[in-house]
Amino acid sequence: MNHSISLTVNGARRDFVLDDVRVTLLDLLRERLHLTGTKKGCDRGQCGACTILVDGKRINSCLALAISHDGADILTIEGVARGDQLHPLQAAFIAHDGFQCGFCTPGQIMSAIGMMREGQAGDDPERIRECMSGNLCRCGAYAGIVDAVREAQAGMDESNQRRSA
């Protein structure tokens, strides 16, 4: 049975007919919308490579049925930069070498954006490590990831302060 659903993906509304209710958000993005920046590392919620923001919150898109998220607002790695203008986290990941092979990177960055919005970690490296522990990195780029998050966060705090001043 076909189901019509609509999603907002990276700011654009997408309506489509879902011919299979088993499709996860991850497979919808990757195999049907061809937004392949979001990665499949385990497909079981155990690695974080598929992290996206749904209605502003980071989740594992591999464990989310697309049909159940009818109407959701989705942000993927493809929607983070503004053209050539990198998001501060993206720039910081490059500057601090927060990745090697790059496969977990979209998930790490989406997770870090989600974490900053949650506002629980602050600048405490220990809390950042804990709050980023849902994203495995087999290459072992964790130190760079923590440094990148701290730098991006500091920069964004500063620019927020400037804006409100």
Partner: peptide, 21 residues
């Protein structure tokens, strides 16, 4: 030097095998 493939990787534009269709 920072990675020359860095921008591709942080934007999700680096194409891994399974990204092809």
């Amino acid at each position: 030097l920072t990675r020359r493939d860095g921008v591709l990787k942080v934007k999700g534009q680096a194409t891994y095998a399974a990204d092809n269709h």
